[in-house]
């Protein structure tokens, strides 16, 4: 039992559990149930813009009318209109490619940080984390500056003679990937660094002692041992990127939208709340497995060795 075990019955102790519990229940879990309910509703020109509305004052009759009014129309729409399916697939594709790119760029960076002299490591962690503290919006905006048609990238490339004419960078997939990698790099680097940094140097020395070359030792020892970090970083990037809105909206083109954009436009432009809710419900179902894996990872991280 905990040190506070003896106080488990006190009011102060109860409050410590009940307050965050009640808050998260009311503002995190309950809203999902409402999203689910509205995804089964139909659009209406009304306030709020959906029907049926549960009328508690009407008692039993009201509840029945409410249940009769529910429909799966929004889900049928999402399932039958290829626009939505294509949007989901594109989100998953962009999330997968971005995560792979992040791993490719983040791993060497994390490795270099973990191999740096101990005193330098804290500074390096700080330097990698610092950009995260500035607004995502600002960071994305900074890339618009660089990537636009008469932006610095084209100016530099033309001046260096690599290209003759300014090319289009902004509003392409390349721009989206640059934005994703740039914004999510700390989420990939830090878990990787954490596992690599914990690794015992003597393991590599033992491998060398047993005749294993450095390059081979990396594949045989370092990489397998850092897999938990790879999984953690991958999940931390993949899940939120699948639902990303700001980056594709500002850097991407007007072609195929990611699902976050689709949801946004259904909600804000079309005012179709039931379809927006249904999109959210389906996205949540798609992400259920990675979110579950991430939850288990967090629980293990904190419960281990207790």
């Amino acid at each position: 039992m905990s040190a506070f075990g003896g106080a488990g019955k006190g009011w102060g102790a109860r409050l410590v559990v009940i307050a965050p519990y009640a808050w998260l229940f009311a503002l995190f879990l309950l809203p999902f149930l409402i999203v689910f309910k509205i995804s089964l509703s139909q659009t209406a020109i009304a306030q709020p813009p959906y029907t049926p509305v549960l009328d508690l004052a009407a008692g039993w009759e009201g509840a029945r009318a409410f249940l009769d009014g529910l429909s799966a129309d929004s889900f049928v729409l999402i399932g039958s209109d290829t626009l939505y399916i294509a949007s989901y697939l594109r989100s998953l594709e962009i999330a997968a490619v971005s995560t792979a790119l992040l791993l490719l760029i983040g791993y060497p960076l994390a490795y270099a940080m973990a191999r740096a002299p101990a005193r330098l490591q804290a500074v390096l962690v700080m330097l990698v984390v610092l950009p995260f503290w500035t607004s995502l919006l600002i960071r994305v905006y900074a890339w618009i500056n660089i990537l636009q048609r008469d932006g610095l990238l084209n100016q530099a490339l033309v001046r260096l003679g690599i290209i003759d004419e300014p090319t289009t960078w902004l509003a392409t997939d390349a721009a989206i990937y640059v934005g994703m990698v740039y914004s999510y790099l700390p989420f990939m680097v830090l878990p990787l660094y954490a596992t690599l940094q914990k690794m015992d140097d003597s393991l590599l020395e033992a491998a060398a002692d047993l005749g294993c070359r450095r390059f081979k030792a990396f594949w045989a020892i370092t990489l397998p041992l850092s897999l938990p970090g790879v999984v953690a970083g991958g999940l931390l990037c993949f899940i939120p990127i699948s639902g990303e809105f700001v980056i594709p909206d500002l850097l991407g083109g007007s072609g195929q939208m990611m699902i976050g954009q689709t949801l946004w436009s259904e909600f804000f432009a079309n005012k179709d709340w039931p379809v927006a809710s249904a999109i959210a419900v389906v996205l949540l179902c798609v992400l259920l497995v990675p979110i579950g894996a991430y939850e288990r990872m967090q629980v293990r991280r904190f419960e281990e060795g207790r």
């Binding site: 809203p31 949801l263 949540l284 992400l287």
Partner: peptide, 14 residues
């Protein structure tokens, strides 16, 4: 890790 659009939408509906 929840995509912000889902959190935002669900809170608004609440």
């Amino acid at each position: 890790v929840m995509p912000e659009v889902i959190t935002g939408l669900s809170l608004l509906l609440l």
